[in-house]
Design a binder for these strands. Structure first.
Lengths: 337, 337
DNA sequence: AATATTGCAACAAACGATTGCATAACACGG
DNA sequence: CCGTGTTATGCAATCGTTTGTTGCAATATT
């Protein structure tokens, strides 16, 4: 615009307006300590030169970062891409909620190599708080940091004996609902697809076990610890189908992504869903009713989850020692079961 | 840890070590101006108190932000969630590449209400550069900002007459390839699913048109301007199938997400793919070989794309006036065609 | 008319680092 | 014992804001 005399800071603008930097600062903050006339003059001038005060300097002075760290820990994943729509859905909700509260979102996928990864973020002074999307296999690290750093919340399991603040659905119950549904559908042999290294998954598995046990079907249950990505799940399941002697008639997948791979693998093996096998997923991601056949699944309300995460986080930033939140899972029956 | 005397800044640590703040700063930076012995003592002390210098203060002094803004403009989307795996895939690659270069990723979904959204980010002093994932319908805004702000790159179309730096596949050619493939498969009536408001889509559409024209099939072509989300695409397509008199035998979807919705809608209408209708998508997202039937599609190499985006961006941050990059699209034939 | 109140704006000290320059400490040869 | 050269540290300015305190007029009060 004005090539030469670009206004780079509040002092430049002050000079231009013939006032002191302090006055400019207050004027731009619309402080009533400054006469309305001066205020408007300065604001007008700022607009003309499209000047915007430097956020970093402001934050330094103000002692806040204006950003929330959103971390995706990939501890148990073997480092491949996560193209998992789950994350994007969650991320979308979080981004909206944070923006609404005037905070930026500092995204970081972290493959924890040393136990210091979380400390680094927390102590960097870059963020006012941290949201973890999933706990992965890093419970110990999380617990340790949480014990000294209040504004930390995690999406995931609410684990007995653990104190960090979490938001997640009742995974045990979710697993139970899924299994019970298959039992009701008349299934008698079951398989669980998913890696119980992640605590959420472990709880879902446990819920299944419980449901099967109380129907006396605990013995007809096998587990395939498949990774969560679309890339790795499919070959694993396919191979499993090749190897297994008798295909079960009820399959519970630890996530919709895995379920989708399963549907495809089953189709390839000429197995009819839901004719021969009933399949239930977990998450109710947007694509769950786009698959062929559409996927029955246990719905986690991610919108509500994200809202809770952000709400709890800001209460913690304000100093409150909040508890955790457990959401009710809900069975969504579609064609696959 | 040490409850009382928490070390909050470089000065505290200096006091503890019995040296001046400046010395601590240099010691932590491993400067050779400081005696090895002192250096190690200070580093040890820092470790003990797990002290990490405040990044924001550092950045202010050093005049860099240490973060790159990644923006997802949602101009033509009507504000719903984007659960599109495309973004997550891209985001994952970007996150990795940026972290590798020591930069954080400031994520922002922006629904442009005023033409100032991009200026705000650029002038905030919070980011060293900006990557746009998609141009949406904001070409004018982007062009304007790009003309004065060098470190700005966009994923999307390389538009004639436009000067901002972009990385994207040759959409026109991609569209051409897709259409030609269907022609080769013997299709004679065509439909395009996708909203040409976004320039990438417009170019793909144009490519299709070109291919059809040169085979004299331009007249047998209809367009359904469907939105890009899974949520909205399916009902639109379903309705279209209800209404249309004669279903075409070649369908080109502007994205894999749309293609997936199409596959499902077709299945519901009892239309055999690829028996009666051939379908081609665009993107080659991870789930493209998970659908039933697996999806033929025009592959965009997102990994390479992300690498280019980051590379160009950093060259621009260094002051170089780089050109744009156009990637070759590649047809991936699977079951749906 | 003298004093108290108010309204505006300037001054200067933070915030927590980095870094050029000045200086202190030390060793060494003459 | 002094000058000279290293090497290691301290000092103070700086980055661009915010904000408590202060100074000064103009107005209100008695």
């Amino acid at each position: 615009m004005d090539g030469q005399g670009r206004v780079r800071n509040i002092t430049d603008l002050a000079r231009l307006a013939g006032v002191s930097p302090g006055t400019v600062s207050r004027a731009l903050a619309d402080s009533h300590l400054i006469a309305k006339k001066t205020r408007e003059k300065i604001q007008q001038l700022a607009r003309e030169h499209d000047f915007r005060p430097n956020v970093m300097a402001r934050n330094l002075r103000i002692k806040r970062a204006g950003a929330i760290g959103v971390l995706i820990p990939l501890g148990h994943e073997t480092g491949q891409h996560i193209s998992d729509p789950f994350f994007m859905t969650m991320l979308g909700h979080l981004a909206d909620a944070l923006t609404e509260r005037g905070h930026d979102l500092l995204l970081s996928r972290v493959i924890p190599k040393d136990p210091d990864w979380l400390n680094r973020v927390v102590d960097s002074g870059r963020v006012d708080g941290v949201i973890l999307i999933g706990q992965s296999d890093q419970i110990d690290v999380i617990e340790k940091v949480a014990s000294r750093y209040l504004p930390l919340v995690a999406w995931g399991a609410n684990l007995p004996g653990k104190n960090h603040c979490s938001v997640g659905s009742d995974n045990r119950k979710g697993g139970e609902i899924a299994a019970q549904h298959l039992i009701d559908r008349g299934c008698r042999n079951f398989a669980f697809f998913g890696d119980p290294v992640a605590p959420e998954i472990a709880e879902r598995l446990e819920g299944c076990r419980a449901a099967l046990s109380s129907s006396g079907l605990a013995d007809n249950f096998s587990i395939l610890p498949a990774h969560l990505t679309a890339e790795t799940a499919h070959p694993a399941i396919s191979k499993w189908l090749d190897d297994t002697q008798s295909i079960p008639n009820g399959i519970i997948a630890a996530s919709d992504v895995i379920a989708m791979s399963a549907l495809r693998a089953l189709a390839e093996h000429g197995v009819k869903v839901p004719g021969q096998v009933h399949v239930v997923g977990y998450d109710d991601l947007p694509f769950a009713n786009q698959t062929v056949p559409t996927l029955s699944t246990v719905k986690q309300d991610l919108a509500a989850g994200a809202a809770h995460l952000v709400d709890l986080l800001f209460r913690r930033i304000a100093g409150e020692e909040t508890g955790s939140v457990v959401l009710e899972p809900e069975l969504v029956v579609r064609q696959s079961s």
